[in-house]
Amino acid sequence: MTLATHWHYFVVIALMMTGLHLVIARNNYVKKLMGLSIFQVSVIMLYVSMGKVHGGTAPVYVMGENGEPDLGVVYSSPVPHVLMLTAIVVGVATMALGLAIVVRIKETYGTIEDDEVIEKDRQEEEALADR
């Protein structure tokens, strides 16, 4: 392993850790979801970068003169592209679900900070226990 061949993995790991830290250390739910989307992009980046070949082109056939694809051309692997393409769209749909839950939490608790929500739950339980 050398820096020249693996440097992009370091950036991907750094991004991944930025996202992970936002998800576990921040109280704000919207910020947590932003962290999740950063994490997602870094994972996608990891997969897509594995499919790359030096000097390769996108996996769309380059046509030769006889109307058949020129198999001498080097192509990147299409498999990670397919998997990640759908993952992006699914990711935004599920993130919308998360944001919808955040909106409902705001409407019920009046806040989107994790610690305040826990505090209000605790107060409510105490009030119920006193009754």
Partner: peptide
């Protein structure tokens, strides 16, 4: 990285949809 299809999707989703969704959520919350 020659992943043109992925790039296409990410650009459309990231610029077109997810930012708008975040803004809509913020308008309803803090």
């Amino acid at each position: 990285m020659t992943a043109v299809d992925v790039a296409f999707t990410e650009a459309a989703v990231g610029a077109g949809i997810s930012t708008v969704l975040f803004l809509a959520t913020l308008a309803l919350t803090d």
